[in-house]
Design a protein around this nucleic acid. Structure first.
Lengths: 116, 116
DNA sequence: CGGTTAAATAACTACCTAGTTAAATATGCC
DNA sequence: GGCATATTTAACTAGGTAGTTATTTAACCG
């Protein structure tokens, strides 16, 4: 996988278990065992998911006796959201006659340019 | 990788080449060769990236003689942005004394509960 | 038809991921 | 110290990803 922060963030978000873990952490800091509880998955598997989230900077882990409380760190989510914002105009655009027309004109121009 | 749409979307976005391809497509529909041009990478590599983007529903490919024009499809980006929106309050929250205080109270309560 | 261009596929390598079970580590409690 | 609990690490398997070069397919053009 690529080494830039955004790539790490999106990669971390590309797994439903990890997204569910983040959703749980949105309710507040908690232990690994409690995070693991909803999943039919071994503890080591959860531990690995947490490591991925930690490497992506999406969580931090503290120490409270033998517990390792996990806490959400939202900054990478903000950065990801900002990246997506650049494309907002595309999904807000009504895909109406004008847009389709412009697209086809563009394709036609390229075609004509090649024919010269 | 997981099979749900959101996982596919985030996985597709977790590569800088693919994000750059989407950025180029935001300027308008274009051919594979033109998409490949900015990258020091073989055509088959680009072709594979396009396949990933297509599987994620982020692009569609048409046919214009021997060209395969690619076009951005923004719906999955919208869905990803909406997922991230759920966490907006976390990055907008000022991480001030109150928030920190609440967090520590929460940790303390769990500790006390265990001691009973 | 033959040559050229655009793009995809095949076959391969190297590495990463997501899961498993078994063992190790860390800490609190008596 | 020794047991119990929480969590991580080790070692392994199966499958996916990102890239390569060589080959193949598709379409236009003369």
């Amino acid at each position: 996988m690529s080494t830039d922060p955004l790539s790490h963030t999106f990669a971390a978000l590309s797994d439903p278990t990890r997204r569910a873990i983040l959703a749980r952490l949105a309710l507040g800091e908690t232990s690994v065992t409690e995070l693991a509880q909803p999943f039919e998955m071994s503890m080591p598997a959860i531990s690995k998911h947490l490591k991925v989230l930690e490497r992506a900077g999406l969580i931090v882990r503290g120490r409270d006796a033998q517990w390792r409380p996990c806490r959400l760190k939202p900054q990478p989510l903000k950065d990801a959201a900002q990246w997506l914002e650049h494309y907002r105009r595309f999904w807000e655009q009504s895909f109406d006659r004008l847009e389709e027309y412009l697209r086809q004109m563009q394709a036609k121009e390229r075609k004509d340019a090649r024919k010269k």
